[in-house]
């Protein structure tokens, strides 16, 4: 028997599946160009822009000098980075697992000799690739157009630390949304739960305003959750407002969150499959 005919080992098969899923997801996303621009390029830009107007009004017309140590230019830079980095956080519409469960399509994947989760991981990889390219393009364009306002990282190390936390945070978002989608094994509708999760994550991650502006007790609670370390804290590290010790704490929170979420995902998936009738709702 030649080596070419030898069945590939499990890790090779899993990697090949991941690569195929990645390519197909990318093609699917790019199939409708107008939709691609709207969904991938423009998403997440309007909210931060509107908050800049709100902060401008506070500083210009209402006599505010500083919000817990944040000057207006610093808040503008924070919002620019929110618009850039929030793109990298996995989006609630990135998966369609619940639809596949409702309609019974997931059956075909469950009977094949592959892990369904590899397909979802392929989508996560595609999402990150597209968003990394988009975010980089946005950042470079902004730097060329408005160099005086555009936020540069404190150092290469700060940039690396911020990106590491954001990418780990994005994986936490992905696992969270996968778990909420998988609740479709029991519930008739999960989109409300998904949207609700999105609202909560938006607020507690610091998308609307930096977590450090929030009242002390709220801040103390949020600093234990992964959303804070996925967006608000990395931006503060990038800008040099938080140091290397914060990076280590963030790394610990995010890794612990990934372990916990992965455990929950496995339990929910295994129990959901046992509950699944195969024909959809």
């Amino acid at each position: 028997m030649s080596s070419a005919a030898t069945p590939a080992s499990w890790p090779h098969r899993a990697l090949r599946l991941l690569a195929s899923a990645f390519v197909y997801e990318l093609r699917r996303q790019a199939a409708f160009r107008a939709g691609f621009v709207v969904r991938e390029v423009l998403r997440g830009v309007i909210g931060p822009a509107l908050m800049v107007f709100v902060f401008h009004a506070l500083y210009r017309h209402d006599g505010v000098d500083a919000l817990r140590g944040w000057s207006f230019p610093e808040l503008v830079r924070y919002m620019i980075l929110v618009a850039t980095f929030e793109k990298l956080l996995f989006h609630l519409r990135g998966l369609d697992l619940s639809d596949q469960i409702f309609e019974g399509y997931v059956t075909k994947y469950l009977v094949m000799p592959l892990r369904y989760f590899s397909l979802a991981l392929g989508r996560f990889a595609q999402y990150l690739t597209v968003q990394l390219v988009t975010a980089s393009g946005l950042w470079v364009a902004g730097l060329l157009l408005v160099p005086a306002w555009w936020p540069r990282p404190l150092s290469w190390a700060a940039l690396g630390q911020a990106l590491t936390l954001i990418l780990l945070g994005s994986y936490c978002y992905f696992l969270t949304y996968f778990i909420v989608h998988a609740l479709a094994f029991w519930l008739e509708v999960v989109w409300t739960l998904l949207v609700m999760t999105g609202f909560v994550l938006t607020f507690v991650s610091g998308t609307l305003l930096p977590v450090s502006i929030m009242p002390g007790p709220v801040r103390a609670v949020l600093e234990w959750g992964y959303p804070y370390w996925a967006l608000s804290a990395p931006i503060e590290i990038y800008l040099g407002r938080l140091g290397g010790d914060a990076f280590l704490r963030g790394l610990a929170v995010l890794l612990a969150s990934i372990v916990l979420l992965e455990l929950v995902r496995r339990i929910v998936w295994a129990r959901g499959r046992r509950h699944y009738a195969g024909g959809g709702m």
């Binding site: 709100v54 506070l58 017309h61 209402d62 305003l209």
Partner: peptide
């Protein structure tokens, strides 16, 4: 929460 936090730092927002 957003507006209560912001107006905790200022008496008015754009008047």
């Amino acid at each position: 929460a957003l507006f209560e936090i912001l107006l905790g730092h200022s008496r008015t927002l754009a008047g």
